[in-house]
């Protein structure tokens, strides 16, 4: 195996596009190095993207926020502006592993590892996040939900890699939240996870919503019916019950050692209700 640490995006593309090299991108390595050790991955080369300066930055842009693909979760948590605008995305990233893991783990790695239970992914999808992708054919930008195509699989083409996560500008009277359920309080993989972003009008009525479900299907689920259950309401009990029912209906979970399918379908509804209330309260605070 070779180790490469290019300092430009173009050099990284060239290394990744060389089919002979069978290269893997290395961001924080908290998935890749574990997989290599378990002989579940054996790349011919590793392309460490952390030496590309722009990939280590969080910047506020005219359109919102740009989080470089190599920025670890701990740096996101320490960034006041980002945490103020997108608390749900930041708290989802802050749930990944331990303090040590958060010192390295990135949103891009969480997304491209394509685990159905990846914590930051439903939060990013709810927040309408996009990914910026560089590759031999140039740069393209796609919604986060278009990246994972199945457990461990992504829509990235050969030679392509994620350079940044793009979050929109936070609108007035809007808020987001992410909650997951695990059997312990720390260091476990989600049994179910729910990200919600919503916006209100000045009477407190929900105008728009996005509800994304994690760990209850092979990839993240953007539950349109669940969002419809909230829109036009002030999140009264009937709306929250309709939200929970829509989430349970949209979920297509499996049975495994962390929970049965029936249990996951129930829990995803409970989480959605709680996350919706948090997002609603946060939206009110921005009035």
């Amino acid at each position: 195996m070779k180790y490469e640490a290019p300092s430009t995006i173009d050099d990284a593309i060239a290394l990744l596009a060389d089919a002979q090299a069978a290269a893997s991108v290395l961001s924080g390595g908290t998935d890749l190095l574990v997989r290599m050790r378990a002989d579940m991955a054996a790349p011919g080369a590793i392309v460490d993207i952390k030496r590309i300066p722009a990939l280590n930055e969080i910047t506020e842009t005219a359109d919102g926020w740009r989080i470089g693909a190599a920025v670890p979760s701990a740096v996101m948590s320490e960034h006041d502006g980002l945490a103020r605008d997108w608390p749900g995305v930041v708290e989802a990233a802050a749930l990944i592993g331990s303090t040590q893991v958060q010192g390295r783990a990135t949103l891009a790695g969480n997304l491209c590892n394509a685990s159905p239970a990846a914590d930051s992914v439903p939060a990013m999808v709810a927040a309408s996040a996009k990914v910026e992708i560089a590759g031999p054919g140039g740069t393209r930008t796609v919604p986060v939900e278009e990246i994972p195509t199945g457990p461990g699989k992504t829509s990235l083409a050969a030679g392509e890699f994620v350079t940044a996560i793009l979050l929109p500008k936070r609108a007035a009277l809007s808020g987001d939240a992410y909650l997951r359920f695990i059997p312990r309080t720390e260091m476990d993989i989600a049994v179910a996870g729910c990200g919600i972003a919503l916006s209100l009008d000045d009477t407190g009525t929900c105008q728009s919503a996005r509800v994304a479900l994690g760990a209850v299907g092979p990839t993240v689920i953007l539950a349109a019916d669940a969002a419809s259950a909230l829109i036009g309401t002030k999140l009264d009990d009937a709306a929250l019950e309709a939200l929970a029912a829509a989430c349970s209906a949209a979920a297509t979970p499996i049975d495994d050692k962390r929970g049965t399918a029936a249990y996951r379908k129930h829990v995803i509804g409970v989480l959605a209700k709680r996350a919706a209330k948090i997002a609603y309260a946060r939206a009110g605070e921005t009035a």
Binding site: L26, T30, V34, Q100, V101, R104
Partner: peptide, 22 residues
């Protein structure tokens, strides 16, 4: 594999697992 923390060191002041870094 990043689970136990016995390998903890700091890199540029940040706490990491040295078993999950090359």
């Amino acid at each position: 594999t990043g689970d136990c923390g016995a390998c903890s060191v700091t890199v540029d002041g940040r706490l990491v697992c040295s078993c999950l870094m090359l």
